[in-house]
Design a protein around this nucleic acid. Structure first.
Lengths: 278, 278
DNA sequence: ATATTGTCAGAATATATATTCCATTATTTG
DNA sequence: CAAATAATGGAATATATATTCTGACAATAT
């Protein structure tokens, strides 16, 4: 079968595909117009359905779907379907931006530009994911726990340390008693023992969880200190023992995980706690 | 295979499933815990992937996925997968719900939601502004200076301290000699004096500039140490004396300035330096 | 009116995918 | 420590699914 477009590569992103379908629709045979219409009207169904289910919903034969895909220069129905799946996958993060950024980088300075843009993209994605996944009730309860505490003990090591470094600064500025358990002086355990049920602990750790952080958090939980955790999974050792826990799944660029979402949360928390105390 | 839950019907909505997995996690064998974890951490992947692709991503056998599904009383992997697909359908199909949810929250809990959204917005804006204003040449030259240094001295206080705390960690991981001048032990000046022209300094400070940071940076410049600065204005005392300087204007929410753009830059820098050294 | 080209449904086939099974390896229990 | 039990990985199998093929039909041109 010959196609008037020759063997041009088919679009891989949804928007281009959409335009292509609209443009071609006029020149298509009857059944294929019917398919085109169904595809544009029910993109979600296309993403999840099987060829058979979609065919019957659109009142055509499965083979017609394959012909339609071929007409658009795709390998087959499955290939075309991937574009619809991609659309849903990227719904949360802004697909266009990332694509645009990637295109730009490929031209001028591959090394540094790509690197920087990669980290920027990861940061943006982290923020977007977090803002769509955060449960405000959990956040509010966490704030409540910390607001009722006498002293707030801050637990974090290694990669997460900068987060509590900032919180210690912010709490200090806001005149809220706090104490870091993450310093390199080796008496963390002793300090952790000073915490009472009238205090509260805030622990931050992401996979692979720092053994020390987990140990200190657990120690405090054992002595009835209310624990709020910020971590990346329901199975994190912190999540399982915390009174409240907030999930953050940071995006990464070539193995280096972002800190943007966590940092933003760590900026909001002290302010929220201060507000709650007033 | 007999299951302690008998033949209770498995959950058909994502939230119930999530709870069920968390509840059962403890009683599950090792591999199945691993699967459980992957499922909850990467729900989107589960929705679209094939058993084979998911299995390899989670580092288990496809058969393990089936066993996991059976353990939860599903017919098989495909049956379980449908729940994950359903979640995505819900989430994307009615945009209205999310909007409604946002409105509701504004009534219920104006305090926390507004606060958190405000910080998120500031973070996003910072990233966007920075990504459109950054001069990649400057970044590349800064990386060059740091890559040629023997030891990298990191200068920052107060609000900027978490940034170099992260860099010290990153440089350390990348086996790049570095030294923090920002610790509270009072011998910063003495340490700064050790720097030679073969080293380099990286100073970070935003208005109002920390007197100490500025003093230390200037001291090093006087002894011919190449200085790279990250600051917020061309008139910053750091900008005027640095060999290279990168401008970052963070957005703020009710007076609290974001750290997202700076942090992202501080994640990219060490990696770029390490690449340049290779 | 007839040849030609294009379209289609449905059957046949190829391929991808999930699932089951079994031998081997861990783990528990007496 | 030995025996029993459960868990695991990998191959074999069953099933679902997409794709191709064929002949019939319809539209169009000659």
């Amino acid at each position: 079968m010959k196609n008037e477009q020759g063997d041009v590569l088919p679009p891989r992103d949804f928007e281009s595909l959409r335009s292509l379908i609209i443009e071609r629709r006029a020149a298509l045979p009857k059944r294929l117009v019917q398919v085109a219409r169904y595809f544009l009207d029910h993109p979600d169904e296309i993403a999840f359905g099987t060829a058979a289910s979609i065919a019957s919903a659109a009142a055509v034969q499965p083979s017609t779907l394959v012909r339609f895909a071929h007409q658009l220069n795709y390998d087959g129905f499955s290939d075309l379907q991937k574009v619809f799946q991609g659309r849903l996958r990227e719904r949360t993060s802004n697909y266009d931006d990332r694509l645009k950024a990637l295109k730009n980088t490929k031209q001028d300075k591959p090394e540094e530009t790509q690197l920087l843009n990669g980290f920027m993209a990861a940061a943006q994605k982290s923020l977007q994911d977090f803002s769509s996944s955060i449960d405000i009730e959990t956040f509010a309860r966490s704030v409540g726990i910390l607001a009722n505490a006498d002293t707030i003990y801050l637990v974090a090591k290694r990669r997460s340390y900068p987060l509590i470094a900032h919180m210690a600064y912010a709490f200090g500025k806001l005149r809220i008693k706090n104490c870091i358990i993450g310093s390199p002086n080796g008496i963390d355990a002793e300090i952790a023992e000073l915490a009472t049920p009238r205090d509260a602990a805030l622990a931050i750790s992401f996979s692979p969880y720092s053994a020390d952080s987990v140990a200190h958090a657990q120690m405090m939980v054992r002595t009835q200190v209310p624990l709020v955790a910020i971590t990346d999974s329901a199975f994190s050792p912190l999540a399982v023992c915390a009174r409240e826990w907030i999930e953050i799944a940071e995006a990464d660029y070539s193995g280096f995980r972002s800190l943007s979402a966590s940092m933003t949360l760590c900026m909001a928390l002290p302010v929220a706690v201060a507000e709650a105390r007033r």
